[in-house]
Design a protein around this nucleic acid. Structure first.
Lengths: 177, 177
DNA sequence: CTAGAATGCTTTAGGCTTAATCTATTCAAG
DNA sequence: CTTGAATAGATTAAGCCTAAAGCATTCTAG
């Protein structure tokens, strides 16, 4: 029941694949197809990264992201700041930091002027562990995106910026209609 | 500690936002920045959709996705096929179908020639419920992606296709190095 | 026919994520 | 100073998702 219509890679590839966006119907709106493709792409790459992080380093993407953020702030970040940077809820950050603290990769320090707040920082061990992972991670990303020319990279970057800023404009209105 | 260097929207927007990709350092590889932007964009849109589905219809994106897939196959799909289409594990599909069955939106039917397999199909109620949601969903998508011209849509679509096919080539190799 | 492999699905354990709620602390108005 | 609102973080309940293991059925060599 797969479409055999037009564009795309080899026949084998078309048959082998039947993911979320491949079989969008002809009548579907352009925007819908674009969204499905965006979603598929991201999931594909994200899954690839998750697998590699798990197999090579026994860690997960959220843990890696959090450490990656801390690595840019040697003085540490408050929980609130972390949750803002990572675009996740505070409760989520609490859980991930808990694990990393257990593994001695990050530490919670009191925030001098505010007894409510905590400052989270990479430990020395965390910094070292992150360094190794970051180098590998960047190689993986470069490799998985190497199908595009430098020019295409730039164009994709530009278009995504536009999507992002327009979406921000919409989602920041309190209701979404 | 935010970069105040170059491109981007207004100053307020730059300050207000501090998400995952905004503060990538100058030395980071192009590919890394592109990946972070792709991730941010997708998450932004995905979160928007999740919120709308929850607020307007009391449902979730995975449930919507599954029903959306079934809607294209009136004769139903086997669990295996569903998990392939949705790019998730079989166990995951089992759980989501369980819920939808409880809500009488889909039904499991025996597969005639194979007593191991099950065929999952929208019920009449499920089909009606999905119709309403799908119309709203498409409007939301069109709106959130309306910042791009028709030409830009096409270009983004093309570039993502390239990313996707290259990534598929890589992730299909058994190891990722 | 009959092992043994493969397949379709479910179950389990564990991690991620959210919204909502709670506690402690800080801030601001009177 | 005191009261009440706001803020920082943690906790809880529920859903999503995965990898791995398990069960039943089907297929395939011999």
């Amino acid at each position: 029941m797969l479409r055999v219509t037009a564009i795309g890679p080899s026949d084998e590839a078309r048959v082998r694949r039947a993911d979320r966006e491949t079989s969008a119907r002809a009548g579907d709106h352009r925007a819908l197809r674009l969204w499905l493709r965006l979603l598929t792409c991201t999931q594909l790459l994200e899954r690839h990264m998750r697998n590699l992080l798990r197999l090579r380093f026994g860690t997960t993407l959220p843990r890696f992201d959090l450490m990656s953020r801390l690595e840019r702030y040697p003085e540490g970040l408050k929980m609130k700041e972390l949750s803002h940077h990572l675009m996740v809820t505070g409760g989520n950050v609490t859980g991930i930091v808990d694990q990393l603290v257990r593994e001695r990769l990050v530490e919670r320090l009191p925030e001098p002027g505010d007894r409510r707040a905590l400052r989270v920082r990479l430990t020395r061990a965390g910094d070292e562990a992150f360094g190794k992972m970051a180098r590998a991670h960047e190689e993986w990303i470069v490799s998985v995106l190497s199908g595009l020319s430098r020019k295409e990279h730039a164009e994709l970057f530009r278009l995504l910026a536009k999507v992002k800023s327009h979406a921000l404009g919409i989602t920041e209105r309190k209701d979404g209609a």
